[in-house]
Structure formats: structure tokens, C-alpha cells
């Protein structure tokens, strides 16, 4: 019972931290996914320079831990005279992370569109542009949706990394509260619950979509 009263007292601060976490997640998804689409196109491009750049961005974005990229943006770039506020650095690093992961999911989605669809489109005389934007993309994105939702949940949880550069998000807020009275068990349990309250329903929705898609496949 004492935990619940303690939690109630922490809640206003924690909610503001959760708000920051959700904001960072939203920014990285809203900016990262369109960028991911662009990257997925670059990786498939005929132009060698575009393909190489696309591949490099995707492979580094997926290959390096998000925390490393976060640190590079925040501590590394000032060396070149580029300095960001911690929250901006966090957003940029996570945008890259989201773009890299989503690009692979989008690419897989596009590749999952049966060859027959392209053949039918070609045989009808539809232009390459129409074939891509009206036939391939809508179907590819549809099958990418569950994967993209999964990455969105990971992105939300990944915002906790911003703690490492002192962004006042949920994790940092919890740490600050905990360091006042050293009741870390209590406060991090609450932090975990806050993440779970968002992530779990999101996972259920994802599973629902997966099932729905499987049924209509």
C-alpha cells in the first residue's frame, strides 16, 4: 500500500517524463519512416552512388547500437562545430535508427508483392510510375504494417537511451526521483509499468493487425 501512495506522489513528474519519451518516439517515427522509404528505394536504385549511400546509412543505422549513434551526435559532432541540444541529438539519432530498421521492413514488404502483379501491370501498359505507386507500394506497405508497428514499439522503448545524454524523458525522471531517496526498486518498477502500459496494448494491436492481414492474404 505504501508503494501505491509513493507512486501516486511520483506520478505527475513521471507523466511529464513519459510525455517527453512519447514525443521523441513520435518524432523519430514520423520523420524516420518516410526516410526509411527513401532509403529502401535508394538500396534498390540502379544508380551506384545512391545505392552505396543508401546501403551505408542502413547498415550503420542497424549495425551500430543506437546509444553509440546517440553519443556520436551529442558528444562527437561538436568537434566539427555542430552542436545539438540533448533532445535534438536524441531525436536525430533515433530518426536514423527508425529509418534504418523501417527501410528493411519496407523493402521486404515491397519484395513480397508477387511478380504476377508487376507482370499484369506491365501487360496492361501501366507506366513504371503507376506500377510502383499504385500497384506495388500499396500492397508492399500493407504487408509491412505489422513490422513497422513492431519497430514503433521498439522505438518507444529505445527512447530510454536518451537518458544517456540527460534528456528529461521517463528513464531520466525516474533516476532523478530515485536518487533523492534511494528507493530505486520502487521508482524503476513504476518506470517499467509506464513503458508497459503503452507497449503492451500496442503489441496487442500489432498482433491483431498481423492476424487480420494473414486472414486477407
Amino acid at each position: 500500500m505504501s508503494w501505491l501512495t509513493a507512486w501516486a506522489g511520483y506520478l505527475p513528474q513521471m507523466m511529464s517524463g513519459l510525455g517527453v519519451s512519447l514525443m521523441i518516439a513520435a518524432v523519430s517515427i514520423v520523420a524516420g519512416y518516410p526516410l526509411g522509404l527513401v532509403l529502401s528505394l535508394m538500396v534498390r536504385a540502379k544508380n551506384l552512388a545512391a545505392r552505396t549511400l543508401g546501403l551505408a546509412l542502413v547498415e550503420v543505422g542497424r549495425g551500430a547500437p543506437a546509444l553509440v549513434i546517440l553519443y556520436l551526435f551529442y558528444y562527437g559532432l561538436p568537434k566539427f562545430g555542430i552542436a545539438f541540444e540533448s533532445i535534438t541529438a536524441a531525436c536525430l539519432a533515433l530518426i536514423w535508427n527508425a529509418a534504418a530498421y523501417s527501410s528493411e521492413i519496407i523493402r521486404a514488404g515491397i519484395q513480397s508483392v508477387p511478380r504476377g502483379q508487376l507482370e499484369a501491370s506491365n501487360a496492361l501498359g501501366l507506366s513504371q510510375r503507376d506500377t510502383f505507386f499504385r500497384i506495388t507500394m500499396p500492397q508492399g506497405m500493407r504487408s509491412a504494417i505489422p513490422g513497422l508497428m513492431g519497430v514503433a514499439i521498439q522505438m518507444f522503448q529505445g527512447t530510454s537511451l536518451a537518458y544517456g545524454i540527460a534528456v528529461p524523458e521517463l528513464m531520466k525522471t525516474a533516476y532523478n526521483i530515485g536518487s533523492q531517496d534511494f528507493n530505486y526498486l520502487q521508482i524503476f518498477t513504476l518506470a517499467g509499468l509506464c513503458y508497459a502500459v503503452i507497449s503492451m496494448p500496442a503489441t496487442w494491436i500489432t498482433v491483431f493487425f498481423e492476424k487480420r492481414m494473414a486472414r486477407h492474404a
Binding site: P114, G116, A120
Partner: peptide, 8 residues
């Protein structure tokens, strides 16, 4: 086509 290939 054999597999119809309608746009689903």
C-alpha cells in the same frame, strides 16, 4: 494469366 493477377 493463370494466376489471374487481379490487384487485391
Amino acid at each position: 494469366f493463370q494466376s489471374f493477377n487481379l490487384f487485391p
